[in-house]
Design a protein around this nucleic acid. Structure first.
Length: 903
DNA sequence: CGATTGCATGGCC
DNA sequence: AGGCCATGCAATC
């Protein structure tokens, strides 16, 4: 929406245009006392629409009235181009100027809808009108000026790092072209994820990034409080056209447009420290390389090529969904610090193992880098100053490597920052810009924190969604809360949102490589706890007991059934019941304790209580009751946030065993963990627990492996577990010894045989037997050392060379130190899992206020008492029945699963 | 010899 | 089929 001139009906003179242009940037102020409307000769006296500069058009009474009545365009722009009809009511809307920018929205299917109609469809209509139309009108000169100006200002000190490519707004550019590229611009203007044409469906699913539609977010805490919703300024709320225009149009215009329109400069100062200040997004340019030299053509081309209309349902397509910024109010609030700043979320990226590794290089998505960071023509790039949400400044080297005729953009020197934020692979770093300062701000979100998307979609979660997130983000010392146990704590604490995340799945569905890890991690971590409640014996199936290594395992010929997680309790009449949450309405329903539920369950399936077989029926459980229930279990789908921190911690502790063990091979301590468990390109099968060299080492293949003397959390946990295990074993052992030594030997032999197959499976993920883990673990000496002292002396464990090694050592029979199979590893893992499972159970029992939390009929884990239940762990890697199938490594759990069966 | 750098490789979208 | 990007890895520091 050009700010005006183009469509002026009659006045096409240069004078008029100039006037307008000038007015835009410097307001109509000094220019004259005349009405801003060039078609009018009256004296200005009232304010009209907000100009892109942030000022308001000053109009005469008559024009202002027309404007306020929404008839300005009809009055003055009737003959201008850009008129379209509302697809719904047919009303004509002038889509070609700033005056009407707020009065219509683009439709997914094409066409427009006036705000009146739009409001009927959406309660929350952002400012979809951020349309490409915005750029329809060629007003190159003015924009250029504005751009440069803005840039200078934004750039803070020093020269403008780059400037607009004149070509960007080359008047010769066909409108269609403009339209095409617009989206891109809009994108950048609006945080990279604008979509101008809201669609009902989309609205439902789209996260609240849509609230950024205006491009800028002004965070007002009070809004959050008052609305209980997003703290977005009301500008995006549908309003009567007049006020709407008055209020809303300006903001974005004033601030964003100018930058938006700026094209990257061809004269970027490479390597200049002046470029430290992040600049407004340069135009997107795939070709910016070229544009650096000849600017114009490539610039335009780049825009056109890159600018897919945001207006369609795929609106945000400019950047892959995985990079769409998903900021929460809290995050924004935190970032903005002062409420006067407008935050423009730019993009976000989930840290890969490489990113989080100690190499200190954060690979930037090419498009993001080119769109939001200063253009660079030399591989050396330039230093980029980035502020974190705490106000701390970091300087990264923004550069690129030539790569396959393309470029690979990286931020170098991010290690300190990443460490400071205690980020690790899987966590998300966010980039945004503070306006009008123009500061580049880097935030982060710990893994599995759900996108804000659902916040305003899922009613029963709305409050919580925000507050949960918000609470976290608004925490004065958000970083301090990062638990040492890394993922674990957060998974537990934020698990609830994870489920919703899965549901709405606003994370790029395509970004498998990136997302898999995240989602699987979610699954995994979530299900560490959740799976306990999910696993049920197959119907009518009585497990057979298999003895492995002297331990008994339940064996299921059929895989255990995954069921809907429920909360078991006893009702007021002493009857055992379970609470289950409806997939759809999220209400909790009471069911008989013996009810076996499918993994997905909704009210409509409530055959036990027909009266409550509809989502419309109120929930029996009060919020308080629910709250009481929830902390005691680890179900994560809840709209209630546990207020009992202690319990959370306990739960974390309880899960620690499982999770730690699962991640044991991959997690480091404290800082940036070298390698993540994520499935990677080259190691798509890697999952938590994978012991291969890739997973236990940083990307470079170097870096710390856990030493025997390592005292990190992970190692200590393992050692602790080991000790527990050994004590148990010792006990068993002594019992057996009460019998005959002969029988003991036989048992061992059996054990060994049974164990080997699974061990091999587990080793699948290991690159080679000579790899770190394998070879060292295979050292008889070490094993002997460990095994000898492993009976109950943790200190011995500490001498093991690595947690993983410790794990391997776990497999060793204290009494058979000379019998170590290469597969010992797997056994160790199994053991640890078993042990962890027990720990978990103990904790769960402990935490549970209801002693009957695990009725026999439903939970194998509980039903089995202390019996070793490898099968319990089998499916832990996935909350979906078949998820593992595709991931053979699915952590040794698959192997575990097969063990009992094979054995 | 470990850390860093810069490019190459190759899986995945 | 091509581009992106995670990661490998040799060269260099």
């Amino acid at each position: 929406m050009s700010s005006s001139p183009p469509h002026l009906p009659t006045s096409t003179t240069a004078t008029t245009a100039n006037n307008n242009n000038t007015s835009c940037s410097s307001s109509s102020t000094a220019l004259s006392r005349k009405c801003f409307n060039s078609d009018c000769t009256d004296f200005k006296s009232r304010k009209g629409w907000r100009l892109r500069s942030g000022d308001f058009a000053e109009l005469c009474d008559r024009c202002a009235s027309a404007y306020e009545e929404g008839s300005f365009c009809e009055t003055f722009h009737l003959r201008a181009s850009g008129w379209r009809c509302c697809e719904s009511c047919g009303k004509g809307v002038h889509c070609g100027c700033i005056v009407s920018i707020q009065t219509f929205t683009l439709l997914d299917a094409g066409g427009i809808a006036c705000m009146a109609c739009e409001r009927k469809s959406f309660v929350l209509t952002s400012n979809p009108a951020w349309s490409p139309l915005f750029y329809h009108a060629p007003f190159p000169e003015r924009l250029k000026d504005l751009s440069v100006k803005s840039w200078s200002q934004l750039a803070g000190s020093g020269p403008v790092p780059w400037r607009q490519a004149p070509s960007l707004f080359n008047p010769s550019a066909a409108q269609s072209e403009l339209q095409t590229r617009m989206p891109y611009e809009v994108d950048r203007l609006n945080t990279g994820e604008r979509f101008s044409a809201p669609s009902l469906e989309k609205r439902k699913v789209e996260d609240f990034s849509e609230k950024f539609i205006n491009g800028n977010l002004r965070i007002r805490l009070q809004d959050i409080v008052e609305n209980g919703n997003a703290g977005i300024i009301g500008e995006e709320q549908p309003q009567p056209s007049s006020s709407l225009m008055e209020d809303a149009s300006g903001q974005q215009f004033g601030i964003t447009i100018p930058y938006k329109s700026i094209s990257e400069s061809n004269s970027q100062i490479e390597g200049s420290v002046n470029a430290l200040q992040p600049a407004p997004p340069p135009p997107f340019t795939k070709h910016f390389h070229g544009s650096l030299h000849n600017g114009v053509d490539s610039s335009v081309d780049g825009h056109i090529r890159n600018g897919k209309p945001r207006t369609d349902a795929r609106g945000r397509s400019q950047l892959l969904p995985r990079y769409w910024p998903r900021f929460t109010d809290g995050e924004l609030q935190q970032i903005s610090g002062n409420s006067n700043s407008v935050i423009k979320p730019l993009f976000e990226k989930m840290l890969s193992a490489s990113d989080a590794g100690r190499i200190g290089r954060l690979v930037l998505p090419k498009k993001c880098a080119e769109a939001y960071f200063p253009p660079i023509s030399q591989p050396e790039g330039l230093p980029l100053r980035v502020q974190d949400s705490k106000g701390k400044e970091w300087i990264f080297q923004f550069r690129f490597w030539p790569n396959n005729n393309s470029r690979m953009y990286v931020l170098e020197g991010v290690t300190p920052c990443i460490q400071n934020m205690q980020l690790q692979a899987g966590d998300i770093v966010t980039f945004s810009r503070l306006e009008p300062e123009g500061k580049l701000v880097m935030g982060f979100r710990k893994a599995t924190s759900a996108p804000p998307s659902d916040q305003d979609n899922e009613t029963s979660q709305t409050g919580n969604g925000v507050s949960t997130k918000g609470d976290a983000e608004l925490d004065p010392s958000p970083w301090s809360k990062v638990d040492k146990s890394g993922y674990i704590a957060k998974e537990v604490l934020e698990g609830k949102s994870s489920i919703r995340k899965r549901k709405s799945s606003t994370l790029g569905s395509k970004s498998k490589r990136l997302r898999i890890e995240n989602e699987d991690m979610i699954e995994l971590k979530l299900t560490w706890e959740e799976a306990q409640g999910l696993l049920r014996p197959p119907p009518d199936h009585v497990p057979s007991i298999v003895a492995i290594e002297g331990f008994e395992f339940e064996e299921y010929e059929d895989a255990p059934v995954l069921g809907k997680p429920t909360i078991f309790a006893t009702d007021n009449v002493g009857q055992k019941i379970q609470w289950v949450q409806c997939e759809d309405c999220l209400k909790w329903r009471k069911l008989p304790a013996n009810a076996l539920l499918p993994s997905k369950w909704a009210c409509s399936s409530n055959t036990w209580d027909p009266e409550r077989s509809s989502c419309s029926v109120a929930q029996e459980l009060t919020a308080e009751q629910l709250e009481d229930l929830l902390p005691s279990c680890n179900l994560v789908v809840t709209s209630k946030r546990s207020k009992d921190a202690k319990k959370d911690i306990d739960r974390v502790e309880a899960l620690e065993g499982l999770d730690t063990l699962a991640n044991l091979a991959i997690l480091g301590e404290g800082e940036a963990f070298p390698a993540s468990s994520q499935a990677t390109t080259k190691h798509p099968r890697h999952r938590p627990g994978c012991s291969c060299i890739v997973c236990i080492q940083p990307p470079s293949g170097k870096g710390p492996k856990h030493k025997q003397t390592c005292t990190c959390n992970v190692c200590q946990t393992v050692k602790r577990r080991f000790k527990t295990l050994m004590m148990k074993r010792e006990k068993k052992q002594s019992e057996k010894e009460a019998e005959t030594k002969q029988s003991e030997k036989e048992a061992e032999t059996t054990r060994k045989r049974q164990q080997e197959p699974s061990a091999e499976k587990l080793l699948d993920d290991e690159p080679s037997p000579s790899s770190n883990t394998g070879s060292e673990s295979g050292s008889p000496n070490k094993k002997k050392t460990v095994s000898e002292g492993s009976d109950d002396d943790p200190s011995r464990m500490k001498s093991s060379t690595s947690p993983f090694k410790g794990q391997i050592d776990l497999n060793i029979q204290p009494e058979r130190e000379d019998e170590l199979s290469p597969g010992s590893d797997s056994g160790g893992m199994m053991r640890m899992l078993q042990d962890a499972t027990e720990t978990y159970l103990r904790m769960q029992r402990f935490l549970s206020s209801d002693g009957d939390n695990n009725p026999s009929g439903n939970h194998m884990l509980s039903s089995g008492g202390t019996r070793e239940k490898v099968s319990d762990v089998i499916m832990l890697g996935s909350s979906h029945q078949d998820a593992d199938k595709d991931h053979p490594s699915a952590f040794s759990m698959n192997a575990s699963a097969s063990t009992p069966a094979t054995g």
